[in-house]
Amino acid sequence: MSLTLLNVVLAVFIAICFVGANAAYLVWCERKGAGFYQRRPGPMENGWWGLLQPPIDGVKLMTKQLLIPGGVDKAIFMVAPVLAMFPALISFVTIPFSDNIVAHPIDVGVLVIFAFAALGGMSLLVAGWGSRNKYSMISSVRAVSQTVAYEIPLLITTITIVMISGSLNLGDIVQQQLDGFLSWNVWPLHKEVGFNLLMPVSFLILFVCSVAETNRAPFDLGEAESELVAGFHTEYSSMGFGLFFMGEYANIVIGSCLITILFLGGWSCPFGDLGIFPFTHNVGWFLLKIYLIIFVFIWIRWTFPRTTIYGLLNLSWKYLIPISLFNLLLTAGLLKVF
């Protein structure tokens, strides 16, 4: 019993380190990526290719003064950044990085992740409300309707996977995709369902939803810098802002982990289990896959303009929800037939 507790504490600590390092160096990746997409080199001055930029930024954020605007509800104002960071950290507990690297395999891992992802939306609401700023207010209202709109197709699409796998355990879901990349859930071929043409579509839906969930361009309506200045974190400085920032990147990592596990076979090697050391199923494949997805996130962010709130709701209610519902029905039917 106490060993399990220790295990969890250790896991949370490792998760914090992983998330912290990821957040810091994802910022670097993002800036470098933005640079390359924009015909410029990105950060170059601090360290080789600007590699020391993230720690320097971190030190800068930590040493800055945390300003609390006059007249705000201090408790709410202070709790919001923590709320942004905390659920992201907790979600890491249940993510299997490989068949043996997992902090605490929970049988309802998918549910845990979604439960905490919903909390992330709440942090935006609290931050926007607590800032006593009109821009933040508008932003928090937007963020909430956005979260509601995207949780639904996200969940429905995940249910199709759960139906196919017959399990809510993330590890089990990966276990079924270990026979090379044709066995991944993203392909229409599946040994149990037979032929479900809509699987790539549900992969796309999940992908779009996770972009929206993480509040990234083109769905960054919450912070929409050309409309709402900085949205919900307009009034945050120092580590308050830093926590939001890290929370955002932690959410990206979780989103890409989820996509990888549900659709891209988690830690499985795309060529099946070859038995040779570097190509066998291991955590390297997992990391490679999530960083590829993060690369696509960055790519999307630096290509598209922002949608509007009604554009986003239209996309969700007119396209994603009907298609994912149809997909659910089709998958259920196919499961019944085969």
Binding site: Y37, Q38, R39, E225, S226, W302, T303, F304, P305, R306
Partner: peptide, 11 residues
């Protein structure tokens, strides 16, 4: 950029 796309500005 007003519409939220940064890259065309640089081009």
């Amino acid at each position: 950029l007003d519409l939220g796309g940064f890259t065309p500005l640089m081009y």
